[in-house]
Nucleic acid binder design. Structure first.
Lengths: 185, 185
DNA sequence: GAGTATGTATATACCGAGTATGTACACCCT
DNA sequence: AGGGTGTACATACTCGGTATATACATACTC
């Protein structure tokens, strides 16, 4: 749903398909390359749903699209309504670990360590980009910061998983599998 | 790709479709409800690709699926290879803010505040779940922790966005838009 | 100047993820 | 006997995303 709304928002003034992709990638700092084909399929769906309409061609013969009234309302609604986090995105890594701890043949500790290496590498890549000046323009910089914050959280979570796994392993050998410290309820 | 591999991993022993969904949801602590239909479509694709095969029916007449050799190798490969974070998931919230800062008619500060409220509420929901004992079993607990860590990072990022937006607004009125502190390079 | 790489611009085919819906059967309850 | 609920499987459909094809202009080069 994100691409759909992003394109709508970029259509504050009439634009053509190829331009929309360029605008999208410029703003997101090329962190998420957007396939051109998706722009056109999305535009035709938006046209079908009455949110955009073809607005003739420009001087170079490129076919322009513009928002309808319904489209303007949709954009406003998108910005006025927060992104739903009560039913969060499926996360492959969390699923992987959740499944792994229940499959006896898997060395979960190793999975965690390898993932930390991979995420750490991605994080260093983001920081390098930020230092090289890619984070200086505002929109792209915010996206880059987002990736940094998310990667740091992922690494913290992986550390947390390791310690929790160690505790679980210890308590499974001990007779009483009770929480060590006094967590009230 | 996450569901596909998760189902493969759960097929360490022969299971039937409905059972796979139940196992998946139990392990992920019902954080990500899985549509049964997707289990069957995924299974038929996996069968087409030679990763699973129909393994007769059990005593109650339910049709079982089991891993082929290629399927076992696929599972092993999944656990041995970290989740790719160099080309990260598209994130609707980041896209929204990146687009919003470039659209003059949008009050970005308000968007940030509303989102913080929404994320904060989600976070409190996760903590309530954790306190109520949903986080006590290991796999579901790890998933819940993951959601908590991610929500906290999101809130920190939103705070960071606010201060960065304030700085940008200040420097756009001031003549010299230079970084305040000495960032080497 | 013919040939060929490169960039711009649009369009379509295809696949996988995910949702909604339909059907059948067993069980329980009143 | 009828109605609700849970189990089990299957299929239709939409959407997100990738790959590919086509057309045209520019630029480079042998």
């Amino acid at each position: 749903m994100s691409v759909k709304h992003a394109l709508l928002a970029l259509l504050e003034k009439p634009r053509y398909g190829y331009e929309l992709r360029a605008e999208f990638e410029q703003r997101t700092g090329a962190s998420w390359p957007l396939n051109v084909g998706q722009v056109y399929t999305t535009l035709s769906r938006l046209e079908r749903d009455g949110l955009v309409e073809a607005g003739g061609t420009d001087a170079e013969g490129r076919s322009l699209y513009q928002l309808t009234e319904a489209g303007q309302a949709e954009v406003k609604g998108w910005f006025d309504t927060p992104v739903e986090r009560t039913q969060p995105q499926r996360d492959e890594l969390a699923i992987k670990l959740a499944v792994a701890v229940a499959v006896p043949s898997v060395d979960v500790g190793k999975v965690v360590q390898q993932q930390r290496n991979a995420t750490m590498q991605a994080l260093q890549g983001y920081r390098r980009q930020a230092r090289s000046g890619a984070g200086d323009d505002l929109p792209g910089g915010l996206v880059l910061d987002r990736l940094v914050f998310a990667a740091e959280a992922e690494i913290r979570w992986l550390d947390h998983c390791e310690s929790r796994l160690r505790r679980a392993a210890a308590s499974s050998t001990a007779p009483e599998p009770v929480q060590p410290e006094g967590e009230s309820r």
